[in-house]
């Protein structure tokens, strides 16, 4: 059936089954490839997107459950002040190795900084532990979050 959802501020309509996960609507129906498929079970965070600013796993979010919530993806983060600061910090610290997980990492970090603008290490652990980086670029991920938060000097 038809679902109309708001993605990065733009309304899009797709004709899919209601239980199709948002991740696959984004990737295969709307050609937004930034959100990544990693595990299909909510265990790796590569598919992290925002619903009304809250980080969720796109692979565990049926399209029928989205309703009127605003969906944000990595493709929308350059226009988001917090997301953009994080992208710039990621570049400044040369965070990625393979890069496959980094969209999900930035989405989780953006949700964190909106909620907790000056996170401590415990806040970062709690918000980011669902996001796997198989290359283990975690040291730079943590440093980039602190840089974007302006709390790097205090750590």
């Amino acid at each position: 059936m038809n679902y109309t959802i708001k993605i990065n501020g733009v309304s899009r309509t797709v004709d899919v089954d209601g239980d199709m996960p948002l991740l696959w609507v984004l990737r295969d129906e709307l050609d937004l490839k930034g959100s990544k498929f990693g595990c299909g079970a909510g265990l790796c965070g590569a598919c992290t997107v925002h619903l009304d600013g809250v980080a969720v796993r796109g692979c565990q979010t049926p399209i029928s459950s989205v309703g009127t919530a605003s969906v944000s993806t990595i493709e929308g983060m350059t226009a988001d002040p917090v997301g953009r600061r994080l992208q710039e910090a990621w570049l400044a610290l040369d965070v990625p190795q393979c890069g496959y997980c980094q969209a999900g990492q930035i989405m989780s970090a953006t949700a964190l900084l909106r909620r907790t603008p000056r996170p401590n290490d415990g806040d970062i652990d709690a918000a980011m532990t669902g996001n796997v980086c198989r290359c283990c670029s975690y040291t730079r991920i943590r440093a980039a979050i602190k840089m974007a938060a302006g709390s790097g000097e205090k750590s």
Binding site: K33, Q87, L91, G99, Q102, A103
Partner: peptide, 12 residues
């Protein structure tokens, strides 16, 4: 820095 980092962090 990685030459594809800008594409990576913007989800291209």
């Amino acid at each position: 820095h990685g030459v594809e980092n800008p594409k990576i962090v913007t989800g291209q």
